[in-house]
């Protein structure tokens, strides 16, 4: 005997306020008695302490919880399919944040189906994750091209790396685009573009500010030719980033970090960083 949940929407993307519909299927060989079938939609915010912070405990907040009892106690004959629909309305005082799995902050949503069984048997349950997105906004903030110039790499005053990023207000669904050109530099090992997230947890128990790498893209491998422009093109992966957010409990902000790895004489490699803060948004698609 087993349980399956399937949501009607293929993409599994839902928005706050929508109705989530699906099907619970009980696969059953023979007639079985049970004590009730319940389906719940849950949304949870996790705030976790950093690695170094011992003694602190993870805090979980429920953002959304709606249940429905599909079947009362009784018998199930054979395979049964039951439809359900639940509304995605947050708990009072909460907001439905976007699905996000960060370093110390995580927001997840799921639908749980639970079948209570008779006797001392443990209940059967199954869960399926889904994604919640905030609605897209019409206009982004600023669309200016941001140029950058990196100099003074490893003490070399003549070194210069120039480039630009198309915009610092990045639509989370579009790639980060730009260009990079090495004018002069010490011998390079590589240049990477990292998408770095800053998670600031504000609740008194877990105050912390963590910076972690969400995504990394190599732009240059090896000691590239000088004065040759190399494109920057980085598609943001899902769930490791989400639109920049400021809430009462936590803040999420992002920046682009260019990591330049170069040879320092004969003593191996060193790294040089250059940060560009960006704002991630979910924009209405044109």
């Amino acid at each position: 005997m087993s349980l399956q949940v399937k949501l009607s929407r293929e993409s599994l993307v839902y928005y706050s306020g929508e109705t989530i519909q699906g099907q619970v299927t009980v696969l059953n060989q023979a007639n079985t008695a049970h004590a009730g079938l319940k389906v719940t939609v849950k949304g949870v915010l996790h705030l976790m302490p950093g690695k170094k912070e011992l003694g602190k405990v993870e805090q979980t907040f429920t953002l959304l919880r709606k249940s429905k009892q599909l079947l009362e106690a009784g018998k199930i004959v054979g395979n049964t399919e039951i439809d359900f629909s639940l509304q995605l309305i947050p708990e009072s005082g909460s907001e439905l944040y976007e699905t996000y799995h960060g370093q110390n902050v995580a927001v997840e949503y799921m639908v749980v189906a639970e079948l209570q069984r008779t006797g001392l048997k443990k209940p059967l349950w199954t869960t399926v994750d889904f994604i919640l997105e905030r609605p897209a906004i019409m206009e982004g903030k600023s669309n200016a091209v941001k140029t950058f110039e990196i100099g003074d790499i490893g003490g070399d005053l003549s070194s210069k790396i120039v480039g630009h990023v198309q915009t610092t207000s990045v639509d989370i669904r579009t790639p980060i685009e730009g260009e990079l050109e090495v004018v002069s530099a010490p011998p390079l090992e590589g240049i990477e573009l990292q998408v770095v997230r800053k998670e600031k947890i504000k609740i008194p128990e877990l105050v912390s500010e963590t910076t972690s790498e969400a995504q990394c893209c190599e732009l240059v491998v090896g000691d590239v030719q000088r004065n040759l422009s190399v494109p920057i093109y980085c598609m943001l992966q899902k769930f490791v980033v989400c639109p920049s957010l400021e809430t009462s409990k936590f803040d999420l902000s992002f920046l682009l970090r260019l990591k330049i790895v170069y040879k320092d004489g004969t003593a191996g490699t060193r790294e040089h960083y250059h940060d560009i803060p960006i704002e991630l948004q979910r924009l209405e698609r044109a």
Partner: peptide, 24 residues
Amino acid sequence: REEASYTCRNWFLKIAGNKSLVGR
């Protein structure tokens, strides 16, 4: 179909998530 374009986008996303330049 929407499902198809969704899958398609997912593929591109997956490939773009590769760190290595050569691989990408």
